[in-house]
């Protein structure tokens, strides 16, 4: 039974089609990588999954629920930047993952204490306990993204959406983040969609790799047609060969620490 069902989605801005006829169904706890050239609608597709925008036609269903009209608790998201609240300390950011759904957006009394304790446990888990009282601006890019992922996971979303989460990180940090993400995913078994520019990353992390491109191309008017999913690779072990790195990257692992 498919968990996320995308049915015949069209999306256009000001009459310009961006996406057309996108159909895909995804099983629970699959990791979907989304790749494609710039401006081919990957991020638009992610925004539609997030329910930040409504498609012109078609709909997105998660776990059989009616199509959402605005972002909510069932979808977690991490952007390339601005994913954590700059005015909260690292610990407050994690607590916010649980407390923002409350009437006043905060915990009081004993509940607050418990939440802080849970947050500290989470921070220890994601390796940020030593900076719990600092503001995110003082953290490195990799640490900020780790915090953003931790914060999103604390809310226990059903689907995690990542929009080029590691795009601004250096290669070493990026590999560390891959390990971090795979560990978390093995723990939570969450369904993940990740938009990326990095093919290697897409095939390394993904169970499936969706490629967005324009199937029709009018040379006189390149923006006449929208993009759709043109390839749907199975990238798991035992899938199509040569889609994964077979070598272990010991050198990079050692220089990182």
């Amino acid at each position: 039974m498919s968990f996320v069902t995308v049915t015949n989605i069209f999306q256009s801005y000001d009459g310009r089609p961006i996406l057309e006829r996108v159909n895909v169904s995804v099983d629970e706890s699959q990791f979907i990588s989304i790749v494609g050239a710039s401006g081919c609608g990957k991020s638009t597709f992610l925004r539609l999954l997030l329910a930040q925008e409504q498609p012109t036609r078609g709909d997105v269903q998660i776990a059989g629920a009616p199509p959402a009209r605005e972002p909510g608790l069932d979808r977690g998201v991490v952007f390339q930047k601005y994913s954590v609240f700059p005015h909260m300390t690292v610990r407050q950011n994690i607590v916010a993952g649980e407390s923002l759904r409350r009437g006043w957006g905060t915990f009081w009394g004993a509940e607050a204490k418990d939440a802080r304790k849970r947050a500290d446990a989470t921070l220890a888990r994601i390796g940020l306990d030593h900076v719990a009282d600092q503001y995110p601006a003082t953290l490195s890019g990799g640490m900020q993204q780790r915090l953003a992922i931790g914060q999103a996971l604390v809310a226990k979303p059903r689907v995690l959406l990542l929009d080029e989460p590691f795009g601004a990180l250096d290669p070493g940090t990026r590999l560390a983040m891959h390990d971090f993400l795979m560990e978390l995913r093995a723990e939570t078994g969450m369904t993940v969609f990740m938009v990326t520019h990095d093919l290697e990353e897409a095939f390394k992390l993904g169970d499936r790799v969706l490629v967005f491109d324009k199937p029709r191309w009018d040379p006189h008017d390149p923006s006449l047609y929208g993009a759709t999913i043109t390839y749907d690779f199975d990238a798991r072990d035992g899938g199509i060969p040569f889609q994964r790195l077979k070598e272990d990257t010991h050198v990079l692992h050692e220089t990182r620490s």
């Binding site: 997030l50 930040q52 605005e70 972002p71 909510g72 608790l73 979808r75 977690g76 998201v77 952007f79 930047k81 601005y82 994913s83 954590v84 609240f85 916010a96 993952g97 923002l100 759904r101 409350r102 009437g103 006043w104 957006g105 905060t106 914060q151 999103a152 809310a155 979303p157």
Partner: peptide, 22 residues
């Protein structure tokens, strides 16, 4: 940044909480 408002919504914040906490 729009991202912060979206993020707050995915953490379940209402308009009131977004106003108050973000």
């Amino acid at each position: 940044p729009q991202e912060l408002l979206i993020k707050a919504q995915t953490l379940g914040a209402s308009t009131w909480v977004i106003t108050l906490r973000v």
